[in-house]
Simulated assay, not measured.
Amino acid sequence: MVNTRAERLRTPRPTMRPVLQLVEPLRAQVPTGDRGPCLREAGLGNLDAAAAVGQDPFKSQVRLWMEKTGRKDLLHPVRLENDSHAYWSRLLEPIVAAHYTLRTGRRVRRVNTTWRHPEHPWMSATVIREVVAAPEVQLLECLSVGMQMAPLWALGVPEYIRLRVLHQLAVTGAQAADVVVLLGGQDLQVYRIERHASEIARLIRQEQAFWRHVERDQAPPALDGDG
């Protein structure tokens, strides 16, 4: 039987199943509470991991606590100019991902999905790209670093980036992630970060200790260099 064009358009097409099955996606609805709107950022995401344990060179624990407890209005705003490293890193992400495929032969898929830890609902992670059909690695983190930031990569992946990726592995259950970084616009490096149960357990304990300060609305003790 031949269907008409109108009938074919009304017939639903089969959807493709994702290659990587992780954990339950983070829902758009967020619980309400005493502080209301700030709970949209209540959980700790992968970008918060290093600051939560006092290892982020660009954000202190106290500043992160103020953000998570709705005290942003008391902070000096962080300006994001069009010539900032964050702006260019985001702009160059697709190019960095494409060259990762050229370098390694592994296919990459953009998913841009946020996941929640099955046991610790205050932990979330945003996965921008997955590595397709590669049993040895599942996630891909793409970065572009300017000349001023390049020295932080002299010995490999900086600790604050490594903690962000470990947080992703903890939440998603993935076994490994590749970090591909473009240094100074001309040097492409690829690093592998694998899942280590003891390190992830320690990171979860440290993040949970910080999160208790958020839940109790009590500022964490200031560390040396906190501003």
Rank of each mutant, 00 (worst) to 15 (best):
D226I: 02
V2F: 10
A150L: 13
S198Y: 02
V127M: 10
T172C: 13
I95V: 15
A222F: 00
P151N: 05
E81F: 14
A170W: 08
A49T: 07
K72F: 00
Q21G: 01
G225P: 09
S124H: 12
V165F: 07
I193P: 05
I128L: 14
Q175A: 10
L102C: 05
V190K: 13
V145F: 11
L155K: 10
A86Q: 14
R107I: 00
P158D: 11
P118S: 14
L182C: 14
G173F: 03
E24Y: 00
S144P: 05
E141D: 09
V157C: 05
M147D: 14
R212C: 06
L80D: 13
W65Q: 06
V131L: 15
E24P: 00
V214G: 12
M147W: 08
R202A: 15
D73S: 03
D226K: 01
L44K: 04
L139H: 05
H213N: 13
L166H: 05
E41K: 02
R129E: 13
E207W: 03
R79A: 06
S60F: 00
G146R: 09
K68R: 04
G36S: 15
L26A: 13
V179G: 07
L44A: 08
G33A: 07
G173T: 04
R164V: 00
A197E: 12
D226H: 01
V62W: 12
E207Q: 15
S198Q: 09
V145Q: 14
M66A: 11
D73L: 00
M123V: 03
V181D: 09
R5C: 03
V179Y: 07
R79F: 03
R71V: 02
A51D: 12
V30R: 15
G227S: 11
V111F: 14
N3C: 01
Q138P: 04
S198C: 01
A50V: 02
V137D: 08
L20H: 12
D187N: 12
T113M: 07
A98F: 08
L155Q: 11
V179W: 08
R192M: 01
L26D: 07
E24F: 00
A222K: 06
L169F: 02
